[in-house]
Every structure is written in C-alpha cells, then in structure tokens.
Nucleic acid binder design. Sequence first.
DNA 1: CCACAAAGTAACCGTTTAGTTACTGGCTCG
DNA 2: CGAGCCAGTAACTAAACGGTTACTTTGTGG
Lengths: 226, 226
Amino acid sequence: MDKLQAEGKARKVANGGRADRAAQRDPERTRASILAAATVEFAENGIGGARVDAIAERAGTNKRMLYHYFGDKEQLYLAVLEEAYIGIRTAEKSLNLSDLTPEQGVAELAMFTWKYFLEHPEFLSLLGTENLHRARWLRQSTRLKELHSHFIDKLADLLDRGKAKGLFRVDADPLNVYLTIAALGYFYISNQHTLTTIFGRDLMEEASIEAWKRHIVQVTLASIRR
Amino acid sequence: MDKLQAEGKARKVANGGRADRAAQRDPERTRASILAAATVEFAENGIGGARVDAIAERAGTNKRMLYHYFGDKEQLYLAVLEEAYIGIRTAEKSLNLSDLTPEQGVAELAMFTWKYFLEHPEFLSLLGTENLHRARWLRQSTRLKELHSHFIDKLADLLDRGKAKGLFRVDADPLNVYLTIAALGYFYISNQHTLTTIFGRDLMEEASIEAWKRHIVQVTLASIRR
DNA sequence: CCACAAAGTAACCGTTTAGTTACTGGCTCG
DNA sequence: CGAGCCAGTAACTAAACGGTTACTTTGTGG
C-alpha cells in the first residue's frame, strides 16, 4: 500500500475561481457552501443527473469534504430537500393574516405562495424530483414529517370567518383551496419551458407574471365565494 | 483482434421472461417494444436516471438493437417524447364539442384533460423531465413543433359562443382557461406523492379523484362566468 | 438455392462515476 | 508548547455506464 507518500502536492489547481474563503478553515462555511452548491446541482439535474464532482467544484472544495459532512450523495440530497422545506416553512410563518378580511386574507396567502414559488424555482424543481421518486426521501425524513405547514390552519380560519359572514360557500374546503393556489402557481412556473415552446409566448415576462398572479387570486376567490 | 469467434453463443439467458415474440424476427415489433420500455424507464427515472441496459432488458432485446433503431440514448428519449405528444394530440382530436352549450363544452374539455392526465401519468412525468431540461428536446424537434394542440382554438370558440350569449366574461382568455385546467390536473397528479406524505391523506382514492374532477370543472367555470 | 441484406446476439471497450485512501496543515487545550 | 484531532487536498479504485465490435441467424429475390 501507500506507494506515493512522498509525492503529495502535485498539481495545485489554482482554485478554479469558485468560493474564495476568508479563513482557510471554516467548517460552517464549507458545509454551507456544499449545501448551496448541491441545491443548484440537484435542482438543475435531478438526482440521477447530479454529479458529485460538479457539486464539490461548485462549492470550491473537493469530494472528500462532501462525504465528510454529508455521508453520501443521497444523504446530501436529503439535506438539500430538508433545507428547502425549512425555507418555505420559515417564510410561511412570517405571514400574518389575522388582521385582514377573509377575502383579503385568502388573496394575500395566494400572492405569498405565488411570490415564493417565483423566487424559489429550485424548490419547485426539488419537489418535481422528489415526486418522480414517489417522495422516497421526504417519507424517509423524520425531520420533515415533524415540520408541517400552518397554511391549512390559516386557511381554515379565514374560510370559517368568511362563512360566518356569509361571504364564502359553506362547503369551501381549506385543502382544496390550498391545492388550487399551489397548482396554479406550480404548473405555470415549473412547466414554463414546454408551455413557452408550444404556445410560442414567453410566460415569464413581467406583465404575464403579474397577470397570472391576479388570475390566481381571482380564480381562488371565485371558487369559494357564494 | 477477434479472439473468440469460435465461442459465440455462450449463455442463452433463458429469455428473462419479458416480451415473448411470435416471430423471431420482427423489426416493427422490436422497435415498438424498445419504445414502450424506454417510455417506462424515462418516465420512472428521468433522463439522467434512465439506464440503457435496463431499457434493453425491459424490451426483451439487447442494447445493439436500441442503438440500431434509435441512434443513441438522447434520440431514443426524443422518440419517446414525440410519441407521448402524438398520443395526447390524437386523443384531443377525438373530442367534439361543437354540439354542446358553451358551459358543457368547457366542462367536457376540462374533464377530458383530467381523464387523460390520470390515465397517462408517464406523459406528465416526461413533461416534468422535459421542463427540468428547459424543453431542450421539445425545442429541438421539428416534428413536435408542427404538431400543435387544437385545444386553444376549441376553447376560443366555446368562449366566443358563451360571450355572445352573455354567459361568460368578455375578458375570458382561452390560454388562461387552458392553463387553469391543465395546472389543476397536472399538479394534483404529478405531486401526489409529496402531497399525500405531507397532508397524510391519500389523494388517489376513487372518491378524492372524482371530487377533484368536479372541483376543476367548478373552478374553471366560476372563473369565466359573468 | 444461394447470395446478400437486414435482424439479432453477446462480449468487449473507454470513460465517467460514486466513493476511498493516504496523506498534509493548522487550531486548541492540557 | 506539543500532541492530538479535525479540516482539507489530491490521487486512486472498482463498478457502472453508454456505446461499439465482431460475429451469427434468418428471411427473400434473382
């Protein structure tokens, strides 16, 4: 064994130009940059197309560190997925709807979801990958099972208030309303490339995005109003 | 070179139990079974996760034939994608809405789309894969560019008739209506696994599926009615 | 009836891939 | 102040992968 201990530092690689580190040793920073790089790589290529070497290079480190901090490719993917879910759940918490009228509240929740999807296409992409694999990693993660959304509760509250005022249909269901909002946002963004190609119209220009936001709100409200 | 021409038929593999062929030589059948196997493999694993060996085995043939008929992995994927689009376009043609009232017509179109998505999850999966890759193969395919949907025209016609009767909003837009129908169907099915995991409810049981179909129709109509 | 082309087989090949080994450098705490 | 541990590097490896080669089999038209 160990035939070449005397060789050691052969090629010095000249950095590669990725993440220049302030301190040479910074576990937190290294871990975070691997996670960020992995998020991009998994979102762009799916789990089968993602390359461990590409992640290491993007993170400005090397494979060894990736295995050191995350174990293997699948566990790294799981960490990426968990972080993505934590991201949206954290953002959701910041949304306070209790001061708004039921209609305003539902509209606000819909616009929030749209905005979040628009600003986090990597989350949508990871969702797509996860669904391709029948939620294999999501189901496996105890951490994610404990991290539930409060949106259904918030919506139930808004709907109850609206029903009490006679504004909303008594059979309006919070899960249905949430799925409607999520579906309209998700599809438009995640399928933008095939849609744009087929219909020959750029769905991602400012005006179209704004129009679709209004459409989501209008459709959602129209479906629950009496 | 050629060290072992005398060996030849070493292992006879005992079929593997896949597609038993009637005739030993049937190009049409071989081609079709490779395409069918590839559709399953690409739909289940995406382009990065799909394995050429797995496709050959599933098709009851070997890699050589796959390369013989389709060139390489990417061209095979393109053939799969093209066939999937041809499938939905063909089905769309069979739908005649001109005898229905505008409301019935829109409802029928929505239910048709829902049913097609439900019966062809592999099409949704391929769409997801294609969008992950920014519609790279769809854009590349001249064959698919010529194969446009007639749904937007059919919807435009229904909406015009509805507007003339004063039933529909004058600003109702056919593309918006189509995107709404497609979004609600696509998201529910393609994201079933993460949704089921997170909400702890099986969205794929008969009653839920039926309820979502009614929901799609109701939401679509509510969004265009005056 | 046989020559020839197309269909089919399986072993092979070079490259890429996830994952590992063997090592060096630097921070910290007794 | 130095021993030991943790961060970090780069070269290595075995297996898997897409793609090819070399060859056999089978149906068909002159």
